[in-house]
């Protein structure tokens, strides 16, 4: 289900004295099964852009095509698009509204008109995918969940609709390291097992570096960079300029390269960095051979 955005503009609070332009001439194409990180400082327009992708915003200027269907076309079934393009919001409290986890996860498929059996099946699968044990959590009260569990429940609620595209909007913000790791593991597994298109929105470069294949960088309503993750991350200076903090690994490797180390650019995880540094240093205590 490819997504295409052409010449999209957006004005925030249009028609009021507080109106200000928020997106400028956005062009973006996302293919099936891509894993895209959408990053940028706050108020860069990431969320606004993403909300065009599941028809929460309808373009007034420019076009958004989901699988060839124009969201501004009156004949397009927007509710269906919203089921196909699942959106998980930053604050799970906004999204969860049933009493128990099971009821909440069942809400989407029920609305889609699935048979009770099918609903049950999907709930089971969704809960398994996010690592919420059905036995323990099906009847668990939403209020009794921890922050990380709530976020996983919210993801399950969206997954139960069997979306083909999944948008995750700032879902690691405010979690402690353990909660964050758990969520990221879930997402990694989803992408691997389900081959879904995933759009991961974050201002944490560390999260993005760990996960995605392609990075789109936004700043003040514009797309300022777009490419394979390694290449984008290697442009450390540019990221810093717009107030993003590149992952420490990337920064370390960059500095080592500047100081003449023979390490490759675009290393994104610690294990890789370690073996590259060891390679460059040679064995401890052994004199480096001449190149």
């Amino acid at each position: 289900m490819p997504i295409e955005i052409e010449h999209l503009n957006h004005t925030y609070k249009e028609g009021t004295p507080f109106a200000r332009p928020a997106l400028f001439d956005i062009n973006l194409k996302i293919d099936d099964g891509e894993f895209v990180g959408l990053i940028g400082p706050s108020q860069a327009g990431k969320t606004t852009l993403a909300q065009y992708l599941n028809a929460l915003y309808i373009p007034r200027s420019g076009r958004v095509l989901i699988d060839g269907r124009d969201t501004a076309d009156r004949k397009t079934d927007l509710v269906r698009i919203r089921f196909e393009v699942g959106y998980v919001f930053q604050n799970p409290d906004h999204q969860l509204f049933k009493r128990t986890v099971g009821e909440d996860v069942a809400f989407g498929p029920t609305r889609q008109g699935c048979s009770p059996q099918e609903v049950r099946e999907r709930v089971r699968e969704a809960m398994r995918l996010v690592g919420l044990d059905e036995e323990t959590f099906y009847h668990r009260d939403i209020f009794a969940l921890s922050g990380g569990q709530k976020r996983r429940a919210a993801i399950a609620g969206v997954l139960a609709c069997r979306p083909r595209v999944l948008i995750l909007d700032g879902i690691t913000a405010g979690l402690d390291p353990r909660g964050r790791r758990e969520i990221l593991d879930v997402i990694e597994r989803l992408h691997r097992e389900r081959e879904m298109t995933v759009i991961f929105i974050s201002h944490s470069m560390d999260d993005v570096a760990r996960l995605v294949e392609r990075i789109v960088v936004m700043d003040r309503g514009r797309i300022v960079d777009d490419g394979p993750a390694r290449e984008v991350l290697a442009r450390v200076g540019r990221l810093k300029e717009i107030g993003l903090e590149p992952p420490q690994v990337v920064e370390i490797m960059q500095r080592l390269r500047e100081r003449g180390f023979a390490v490759p650019a675009g290393v994104m995880n610690v294990q890789e960095a370690l073996s590259e540094i060891v390679k460059a240093l040679g064995r401890p205590g052994v004199k480096e051979s001449w190149n």
């Binding site: 610690v270 960095a273 540094i277 240093l281």
Partner: peptide, 19 residues
């Protein structure tokens, strides 16, 4: 349950390998 800064972790791993 805390995240170790990358620089700290790399340093620790390198020490372990004898650097």
């Amino acid at each position: 349950g805390l995240d170790i800064p990358v620089a700290t972790r790399l340093a620790a791993e390198l020490r372990e390998r004898g650097y």
